[in-house]
Design a protein around this nucleic acid. Structure first.
Lengths: 207, 207
DNA sequence: TGTACATCAGTGAACGCGCGTTCACTGATGTAC
DNA sequence: TGTACATCAGTGAACGCGCGTTCACTGATGTAC
């Protein structure tokens, strides 16, 4: 829809295939994606896929890579928006995590549930690191506001928030096991992180 | 190995199939499990499976069901062990979550990553609820120790802890995306819950 | 501007594979007399 | 104890299916002269 770069025949088949894959993954889960069906959805023979990807695995990896790219951008935006308040920045990155999962479920699943191995794909590892580095940077600045003797490692703090965000998404933001969520996921994450930050001594114990 | 009930030919094929499924799931992920291979591993023709299960889906569901059963037992044990201290009970259930994921990875994956739908299977819903009810009971008791005006709903507190536990397992306890864990998962969860509880005002702000 | 050629994105047919599921069967086990 | 019968767990062959992947090809696009 945007820049129609029009290649030889199809005009950007590669991206069309990625988008087809994302739709399939979103609809039918990570298992539901097949190279053949993605090709069909893009109006092309399965064999054509091999002009653009090494195979099925590679196609998912590209979907995940684009996901990490978007994710990283969102995190950075959130981080910047909260500045100069370290607390606001940190909270915003947490919210951004959930917002990303909601808005880009296909990407999210590709990244975290498709079985794509980050360790085996250096490209992926690189973009993924950028996203997580933002969260960690926010944590580092946050810790700077604490007395040194009661300052947990920033990596640990970011890991905690990452874990809670991920847990909320997996358990309560999609129809996985938790029947239905007892609370809106956004509220759950907001209050959870709020209590956590109070535990760090960063929020006054008001109400 | 234990009670050899010896049925007609095989002697408890049903359970042997469940165990084969668990091994396969543990080894090769939720996708890696196939009815045929489970049958083969149990030394039996694929068709034999249909004497004991309605199909592939049903076989995974039974693996998950047994997982929830074990999980529920572990949670209850942890809960009882911590008594009469509500705090100890609550912390113990959190730890039990991670211990379960570590000790019974096949079950864990069947329950949370296999795509088995709890809502569509009443049997499953029932055993799952028992497990989560324990966590919630622990949370309720814990909240009783707080002044009423600053007492978040027990359901919410248990959801928070559940989410963080699940997140730690998914992200740092297995080789998913997080490269390698920056900290031992047990420590991560312990400290995370510790900070959270402090935020609730349940632990003194000592060290 | 027109023609000859090179490129290479996508085709279409074919492959071998393992899957989940069905079916009529067989033969070991348990039971009634 | 021995015989006839009923049960039903597991067999073996077959099925249709869609998968990922390969290959020689074709024909539209871009380029050199």
């Amino acid at each position: 829809m945007t820049t129609k770069k029009r290649g030889y025949h199809h005009g950007n088949l590669r991206q069309a295939l990625v988008e087809a894959a994302l739709e399939l993954i979103e609809e039918k889960g990570p298992t539901g994606f097949t190279l053949s069906e993605a090709a069909k959805q893009a109006g092309v023979t399965p064999a054509a896929v091999y002009r653009h990807f090494a195979g099925r695995e590679d196609q998912i990896a590209e979907a995940a890579r684009q996901g990490y790219e978007i994710f990283g951008d969102l995190m950075e935006h959130a981080y910047e928006k909260g500045r100069p308040s370290a607390l606001a920045s940190f909270e915003a990155t947490g919210r951004a995590y959930l917002a990303f999962a909601r808005k880009f479920p296909g990407h999210y699943i590709s990244m975290f549930e498709s079985g794509v191995s980050i360790t085996r794909n250096p490209d992926l590892a690189h973009v993924a690191n950028r996203a997580f580095a933002t969260l960690e940077r926010a944590a580092t600045e946050l810790m700077a506001g604490l007395p040194e003797d009661k300052r947990p490692p920033a990596r640990m703090v970011s890991a905690h928030v990452w874990a809670m965000s991920h847990g909320v998404v997996e358990l309560f933001s999609r129809g996985s096991p938790g029947t239905r969520s007892p609370f809106p996921p956004e509220d759950l994450l907001e209050t959870g992180i709020g209590i956590y930050l109070r535990g760090l001594g960063l929020i006054k114990p008001d109400a």
